[in-house]
């Protein structure tokens, strides 16, 4: 979202350590549910989902001693709100692995309306036919507009529609935390 530049109230809901703990718990849960690395492919959704998927892969490597293949997905070509996009950009989708018959774990930072995940599922089906698709998310903020839910959740955070959840990671932002910003206007 574009920032208006005016001072807005914000509050922290996760700090760096909590993010780290959530990511290691989710890594354990993924391994438990899928009985190891086996057929796993971790697919990060640009931009922060890619970073989180890399962190999950590092954790899995540490816990299990074997590597889960990584892929990057950009969903901009699959969005249903093309007309509303200002300065649209597409980032490269990188799929070094075949997802045919694999268990894919989609990774993103915030789950909100579910439209990004809907777009990601469309994008995945153009790239192959995975045996199963699971969803790992750092923050679930509610307000779904589609029948979509996450399999692995870092933190459930009740929000109102005039708030925005921002995940900040050291790789892309200066801080490492999750904050809620009051927008002061209703977003539809």
């Amino acid at each position: 979202m574009a920032s208006s530049g005016t001072e807005r109230p914000e509050r922290q809901i996760m700090d760096a350590q909590e993010i780290q703990r959530s990511m290691s718990r989710i890594a354990h849960e993924i391994l438990e549910r899928n009985r190891g690395v086996g057929d796993l492919v971790l697919v990060g959704i640009h931009t922060r989902g890619v970073i989180l998927s890399q962190r999950l892969a590092e954790n899995i490597q540490r816990f299990e001693g074997s590597q889960a293949p990584l892929a990057e997905l950009d969903i901009n070509l699959y969005r249903d709100d093309l007309q509303a996009r200002e300065n649209p950009r597409v980032r490269p989708t990188k799929f070094p692995v075949d997802i045919q018959g694999k268990r894919v774990v989609l990774v993103d930072d915030v789950l909100f309306t579910g439209r990004t995940i809907r777009a990601a599922l469309d994008a995945l089906s153009d790239l192959g036919r995975p045996r199963q698709v699971q969803l790992a998310i750092l923050v679930d903020r509610g307000h779904r507009e589609l029948p979509i839910r996450a399999d692995y959740v870092g933190k459930n955070v009740p929000t109102s529609l005039d708030e925005e959840v921002k995940v900040r990671l050291t790789e892309t932002d200066q801080n490492e935390d999750v904050i809620i910003v009051k927008l002061g206007r209703e977003i539809k």
Partner: peptide, 15 residues
């Protein structure tokens, strides 16, 4: 680039 951002329908916040 030309087709995106041509005004219109409602937008959306994160995810």
């Amino acid at each position: 680039r030309l087709c995106a951002g041509r005004g219109g329908r409602n937008g959306e916040g994160n995810s």
